[in-house]
């Protein structure tokens, strides 16, 4: 016995348009503001914890291990070694750089934390852990309170060798 075909199903509604837009005020905080203002002046400002001596770059307002206010900011010369890196080879929505490109954790000389940024002026397959790099700052008219004040880091040509990771 075959089932009688019923009335056709109604066409389902598959989407409802309800676009949200939300605007926010960003509060960088006292500590982060010091670092961001430094970037607008081509300065990498670090701060040391008086309790455990850890040097933060970028520095917050206080040590996240000791909860102690960090000491006064001081400038690093910007050079550091590549602690680890990856090569981004695929495109994704919102990407502003053409793949392939290199993203690295940079261990600045004199700092105990690592800063993430791009590596440029070198072929991705030549990048190595331990390679010494330095910042390439944007032009005077593009300097601002943002990480974008550094276009990327580039090799200094000095081979440091494999970096020992901190315990």
């Amino acid at each position: 016995m075959s089932a009688e075909p019923g009335p056709p199903l109604p066409q389902p509604i598959t989407s409802v348009k309800s676009p949200f837009r939300m605007d926010y005020t960003y509060v960088a905080g006292a500590g982060r503001s010091v670092f961001l203002r430094g970037l607008a002046e081509r300065k990498l400002l670090a701060r040391r914890c008086p309790g455990c001596s850890q040097v933060y770059l970028p520095p917050p307002e206080f040590c996240s291990r000791c909860l102690t206010e960090l000491e006064a900011p001081f400038e690093l010369d910007g050079r550091g070694t590549i602690a680890t890196f990856c090569v981004v080879s695929f495109p994704f929505p919102g990407q502003t750089i053409e793949a392939p490109y290199v993203v690295a954790h940079i261990h600045h000389h004199g700092a105990d934390t690592r800063l993430m940024h791009l590596i440029g002026d070198v072929a991705p397959d030549e990048v190595r852990i331990g390679m010494e790099v330095e910042p390439v700052w944007v032009g005077e008219d593009q300097l601002t309170t943002s990480m974008t004040s550094i276009r990327h880091y580039r090799p200094t040509g000095v081979a440091i060798g494999s970096e020992s990771t901190r315990a």
Partner: peptide, 27 residues
């Protein structure tokens, strides 16, 4: 109405210190 000085951590730390001190404990 608006705190424009502190990030979340800067905002919270003194309050945690206060509550922990009142309880007389170490974190």
């Amino acid at each position: 109405a608006a705190n424009r000085r502190d990030d979340m951590a800067g905002f919270l730390l003194p309050v945690i210190r206060d509550a922990v001190q009142q309880a007389g404990i170490d974190r």
